[in-house]
Design a protein around this nucleic acid. Structure first.
Length: 549
DNA sequence: TTTATGGGCGCC
DNA sequence: AGGGCGCCCATAAA
């Protein structure tokens, strides 16, 4: 496959390297050039660039969609930390700049490039050669190659989702806010209904100047009323029998809504009927995405009713049931657990297998194994299940031991965990740790590495899923730009939302299912692990059925 | 005055 | 003595 690298030069110019052919073109001419090459009879090339978030938004704005890319920043970061990669193959002219490269600024405006002086060091073609050599030279070249491709495809998805946005009904959101909080207050003021709750709490606690957001003040007021509590968590306050508690808890809940997804949030993140958050692919050390603007990965159930499909369109919402336990079955090649994973409910499968008495026990045991529970009900279930599923439970146990020894671990496709004392556990000049403290930290790192291999491999499955889905949705067709066709608008670790013309809802559902099967086969080959989806076709995201398993 | 940290809560 | 994140605030430190 043709690889074409793009490097920015000073001025508004771009160096294009296609095999032995080099040319310099104007930035303004880039969309037309890319569109032309995408239409090559021999198939679309792979675009090689420093950072998808820097190049792709302006292409999308010009109506150009690309099929494939290599995101050198993401892949450099990945390969640097991959245990199966010889780091020396990544060293060379300008490689230190790639080591230091951070994520591009959030693409709030699809601006082009900020002029800085690292341009000549970021020759994409040279870094591309090093990355190709690093992958090829690894004993795990096939898996790493897949990971690099999936990571890059994820970056394309992220840019496309920000470009398209989640269809968002301002009127629905504002009606919701008005009902729960009252009319929009002037800047800096508390909404009326929150104010009333504060007044009630103050009255009730006989503290006329109480700031309900202040922990010390709240603790003191409660003490005066005769209640000694250790903290002001909602779950703690629930147990206090005092008339101030009910309005206080309601205040806390609504204040959170006001602050996090209130009018200010709308002003900042919703425009033109679309919610456009910013995603950070591989933003967490496990390879999961994070979101550094808009809170896309954590917008609460409460405001999801405002995510409503356009007229004549629907939202197709799909989530994977018990993704991580299934991934564990696959990566450990535990045939007994994989058998239990046939069908819609893995936990029920374990019950039917006779491994455990109830569904709840199965869930407790599996989650306990993945998170490193050592005590309580969960801890006890782990012991029993280890005998039934030795490969699966042994794998996470081994990862925990490795972490406790200070060793790094890796996901199925080869992403490495950050080293102990590295980015994982940053405390520059920690006070001279005593032995107990040292021990605690090693155990904590062991719990982290235990979870890392599962959460990280789960993230890899999800990347393969959305990468394949992206292409399938494109092939479903329609004419015109990306957002005139069925397209992804949201991705939340194990769940996606597709915005699609109503007539294509069933077809989209079929592609979601096929893409999940493809992802399973890519990661686990012939080992048959099911990844059943719960699919809802809805107008409003709030109506999607979510079995909370 | 600005900056860093931790509690509390939201999501998976 | 249970993993990963972001965001908001109050608070403490600088």
């Amino acid at each position: 496959m043709t690889r074409i690298s793009l490097s920015r030069l000073h001025g508004e110019r771009v160096l294009v390297v296609d095999g032995d052919a080099e040319q310099v073109i104007d930035l303004a001419a880039l969309p037309a050039y890319v569109a032309g090459r995408e239409a090559d009879a021999a198939g679309p090339p792979r675009w090689v660039w420093d950072d998808t978030a820097r190049w792709y938004p302006s292409l999308l704005a010009a109506g150009v969609r690309v099929a494939r890319c290599q995101d050198l920043r993401l892949c450099h970061h990945l390969l640097r930390r991959a245990p199966a990669v010889d780091g020396r193959l990544l060293d060379g002219d300008g490689s230190a700049h790639w080591d230091r490269l951070g994520p591009a600024a959030a693409p709030s405006h699809p601006t082009l490039f900020s002029a800085d002086d690292t341009a000549e060091h970021l020759r994409a073609d040279r870094e591309d050669e090093r990355q190709l050599a690093a992958v090829a030279g690894s004993p795990e070249a096939a898996r790493l190659g897949l990971l690099v491709a999936a990571e890059s495809a994820g970056a394309l998805v992220a840019a496309e989702m920000t470009y398209a946005g989640v269809p968002w009904r301002l009127d629905v959101h504002e009606r919701l806010l008005a009902e729960l909080l009252g009319p929009r207050p002037p800047r800096g003021a508390r909404p009326q209904l929150l104010d009333e709750l504060v007044a009630e709490v103050r009255r009730s606690l006989d503290s006329p100047a109480l700031n309900p957001d202040s922990r010390p003040e709240l603790l003191a007021a409660l003490r005066r009323a005769g209640f000694e509590v250790a903290d002001i968590r909602a779950s703690t306050l629930q147990a206090v029998d005092h008339p101030a508690i009910a309005p206080l808890l309601r205040y806390k809940k609504l204040a959170h809504l006001f602050q996090t997804n209130g009018w200010a949030w709308v002003d900042e993140w919703v425009s033109g009927g679309r919610f456009r958050p910013s995603y950070q692919p591989a933003g967490s050390t496990t390879g999961r995405w994070s979101s550094n603007g808009g809170g896309a990965l954590s917008f609460p159930v409460q405001v999801r009713s405002a995510a409503v499909a356009d007229e004549g369109w629907v939202l197709v919402v799909a989530d994977v049931a018990q993704l991580e336990p299934r991934v564990l079955a696959g990566m450990s090649r535990d045939r007994a657990l994989a058998r239990a994973a046939r069908g819609a409910d893995l936990y029920q499968g374990m019950v039917d297998d006779g491994a455990v008495a109830t569904r709840q026990d199965a869930k407790l045991g599996l989650l306990g194994a993945m998170y490193g529970a050592t005590s309580g009900e969960s801890g006890r279930m782990v012991a029993g299940l280890t005998r039934r599923y030795p490969a699966a439970f042994g794998l996470v146990e081994e990862a925990a031991r490795a972490g406790e020894r200070g060793q790094v671990v890796r996901t199925l496709l080869g992403r490495g965990s950050p080293a102990l004392g590295g980015t994982w556990d940053e405390s520059p000049d920690a006070p001279p740790a005593d032995l107990d403290d040292q021990d605690r930290r090693r155990r904590a790192y062991g719990r982290f590495t235990r979870n890392f291999i599962v959460q990280g491999t789960g993230a890899e499955w999800a990347l393969c899923w959305i990468a394949d889905l992206r292409n399938r949705l494109w092939r479903l067709g329609g004419d015109g730009p990306l957002d005139a066709r069925p397209h992804l608008v949201l991705f939340l670790h194990d769940e996606v939302v597709v915005h699609a013309p109503a007539a294509l809802a069933d077809a989209v559902g079929a592609e979601l299912t096929s893409a999940a099967a493809t992802a399973g086969a890519l990661l686990f080959r012939e080992l048959d692990v099911d990844f059943p989806l719960t699919i809802s076709v809805v107008q409003s995201y709030a109506d999607a059925g979510k079995p909370g398993t």
